[in-house]
Design a protein around this nucleic acid. Structure first.
Lengths: 187, 187
DNA sequence: AGGATTGTACCAAACGTTCGGTACATGTAT
DNA sequence: ATACATGTACCGAACGTTTGGTACAATCCT
């Protein structure tokens, strides 16, 4: 099993059970690898496994979301594309956000807080840049971008809490149409 | 230390560290009580402690939020009041939601999932009822209510993730003014 | 005196981690 | 070609620690 395949499953375990909730025996069972084998690939132990999972998502953000947002397509089209990718990534709300899980899970330790904050900010900034292209002033673009991610996060929490994909699907549909309607009028 | 005071701190520990992350030594240290004392008050162990914490929040929902939403005040006033109470409860975004923490933390076990789902539904239904009073049809009222809770949850995640109370404060302000603007026009 | 409350000592089980070692493929030297 | 070395992947078993939980005697309060 390649490291890449292992990491994909690590992402899955951590976002299902959280950092403390994902035990090594759990990970071992799910990946089919013995604990010692896991330590061969990740000498830093559990912490390095979580870092690897976060790395994987950083790469996803970079190569999928941020790439779309900075493409040469029409601004509205770029946002649309981002939404589609988000829907696919979170499996219509069935999968939760690793960032949210880790950030809500632990407080005192800054194990992952900083890098998650940074990743969130990058995403927000990228959306804000597109919104500015569409005519919004800097401040409103930033607020709208933040609001977009906020609703995605809220939708994922609700989808899990209510055990239904509907809140997520409805939210994404609403976000899409609202983002599209921005360019058509100046405030 | 009364049981009530203990439970208040239990809520705090669980929403800061999650269920698995909140170890007994952790709880013991934070409450100042030895394990024997904890097991005297909560014979069911850690699980009962978490249940007690959830009970506490259920009581808060009942006596604060739901009570406000079903008062004799003007519908818009009731929603306004609810928002104020939410802002105070979550300390302007500094404290996170125990429901979200627990629901994102564990997946397979249905330890708390069901009761959290039920609590969320009660809250949504209560808001929807008020919105119907304000003239919205049943379906839209329900959607708008769900959207309200969704944005609160999203705001709490973002507040934690970005390490700032701003997303939460801005969201609550926006939610307030949007809810107020509903009665003034019929769709 | 007697029930409520707690500190101390203890337990089995699970935790994350490490060790010693096997299997096998690849490269190297003769 | 063949024997030896090297490196990668993996695993069973055990490490010391911490987990959630219990037993019991001492203390508190009335």
């Amino acid at each position: 099993m390649s490291r890449e395949e292992i990491v994909v499953q690590l992402v899955d375990v951590f976002r299902r059970h959280g950092y403390e909730g994902a035990s090594l025996s759990h990970i071992s069972k799910l990946t089919g690898l013995g604990k010692a084998s896991l330590y061969h690939h990740f000498p830093g132990g559990k912490e390095e496994m979580a870092e690897a999972a976060l790395d994987h998502i950083d790469r996803w953000l970079e190569t999928t979301i941020l790439k779309s947002l900075s493409s040469r397509a029409k601004p509205a089209k770029r946002l649309q594309q981002m939404c589609d990718q988000v829907q696919e990534f979170f499996d219509e709300g069935r999968k939760s956000c690793l960032w949210a899980v880790l950030v809500l899970g632990e407080s005192s330790d800054d194990l992952f807080h900083n890098r998650i904050k940074q990743a969130l900010s990058r995403w927000i900034d990228a959306i804000a840049a597109v919104l500015q292209e569409m005519g919004l002033d800097k401040e409103e673009a930033r607020d709208r971008a933040e609001e977009t991610i906020l609703r995605i996060q809220g939708a994922l929490v609700m989808a899990r809490g209510l055990d239904s994909t509907r809140p997520f699907q409805r939210t994404m549909k609403a976000v899409k149409s609202e983002l599209l309607g921005i360019g058509e009028r100046s405030s």
